[in-house]
């Protein structure tokens, strides 16, 4: 308890950073759930692919090494941009492939709801095991691009430059996505499908295209989260997606799965709660605290804090 009070602002800041990463990943769950009413089980592996894409690009294409020192100036900016785009694309394309392989055929045949879930589980095993074979199951260290120096201190909290980057860029991406869903033609299509698939089809929405694009956008956001994760933690492994995927899914449910604004609130709440809980109870209990809070929230509000459905994201 003492740690919580004495380092409150420090914890709040790192919790928020963690929360922003969760928000971006949980968009991969929540968008797909909004249009398909199905859990995108492979999203944790889509995240994992993004982390590896970041490392492969910075290490093998740009030639940075874990010990080659920090980057500065122009090199730093273009390296980071390049990695971010690569990570987003890799995750986005993986997500589209997952939709094609695991969902499309089953969806068009209108089967029971569990069959796509199992085939998505199958896809996620395939993805993580392929990467495990390629990396021999070992952890991979990312080259340090951004020196983790503390920039300034606010209310006793050290603001680190990598965390500040997440703190600024992640919300921008989130609000960009929200604008896209609310103000573009494609976004309108996505909202229409999430409201009523049949009617949307009758109104001339190309269902397959909208669903592919939803997966793509979810993947792009998850990929961005993967890049941010690598900037802060600088290591990955074939099974890294598992725990963070569960956390992000919990965040999506906490806010009301299928609801974009809910993902924001859910992710932020979860990130903060996790950080506070590990300060008070010790980090080994943080997962339990999160689940207990989730259960309590669901008991009071069975549809999450903000209720279901993407269409409600219009403010």
């Amino acid at each position: 308890m003492h740690t919580l009070i004495s380092q409150f602002w420090q914890l709040t800041f790192s919790g928020a950073v963690q929360g922003f990463i969760y928000i971006l990943i949980s968009l991969g769950y929540t968008m797909v759930y909004g249009v398909l009413r199905m859990i995108n089980f492979a999203n944790s592996e889509i995240f994992m692919v993004g982390t590896f894409a970041t490392i492969v690009v910075s290490r093998d294409i740009l030639g940075h090494q874990p010990n080659s020192g920090d980057l500065h100036g122009f090199t730093l900016i273009y390296s980071m941009l390049f990695c971010l785009i690569a990570s987003m694309l890799a995750s986005g394309i993986t997500a589209v492939i997952v939709e094609l392989v695991a969902y499309r055929r089953l969806r068009s045949r209108g089967t029971n709801r569990l069959a796509p879930l199992i085939s998505a589980i199958g896809m996620s095993i395939v993805l993580s095991e392929s990467v495990s074979l390629l990396t021999a199951g070992r952890a991979t260290i990312a080259p340090e691009m951004l020196h983790k120096s503390s920039l300034f201190t606010v209310l006793g909290a050290n603001i680190r430059v990598d965390q500040l980057l997440v703190f600024i860029v992640a919300p921008i991406m989130f609000f960009g996505l929200q604008r896209f869903v609310n103000h573009t033609r494609l976004g309108k299509g996505i909202r229409a499908v999430s409201m009523n698939e049949e009617t949307a089809k009758l109104m001339g929405v190309n269902l397959n295209r909208v669903i592919s694009i939803t997966f793509l956008i979810g993947g792009l956001m998850t990929g961005a989260a993967a890049f941010f994760f690598e900037t802060v933690y600088e290591a990955t492994k074939f099974n890294i997606g598992f725990n963070i995927g569960i956390a992000a899914f919990t965040a999506a449910v906490l806010g009301g799965i299928g609801n974009i604004r809910g993902a924001f609130v859910g992710g932020l709440t979860l990130g903060l709660l996790e950080t506070y809980a590990s300060a008070v109870l010790g980090s080994q209990w943080k997962a339990i605290t999160v689940f207990v809070v989730l259960v309590l929230v669901l008991l009071v509000r069975p549809n999450g804090l903000f209720g279901e459905a993407i269409q409600q994201s219009r403010v």
């Binding site: 055929r105 029971n112 085939s119 589980i121 199958g122 095993i125 395939v126 095991e129 074979l133």
Partner: peptide, 21 residues
């Protein structure tokens, strides 16, 4: 041994696609 989980995953995907029930 190394690829058995991979084969397991592929089996799940393939069978669910062709026999979803």
């Amino acid at each position: 041994s190394n690829a058995r989980q991979l084969v397991f995953g592929l089996t799940l995907v393939i069978i669910m696609n062709f026999r979803p029930d």
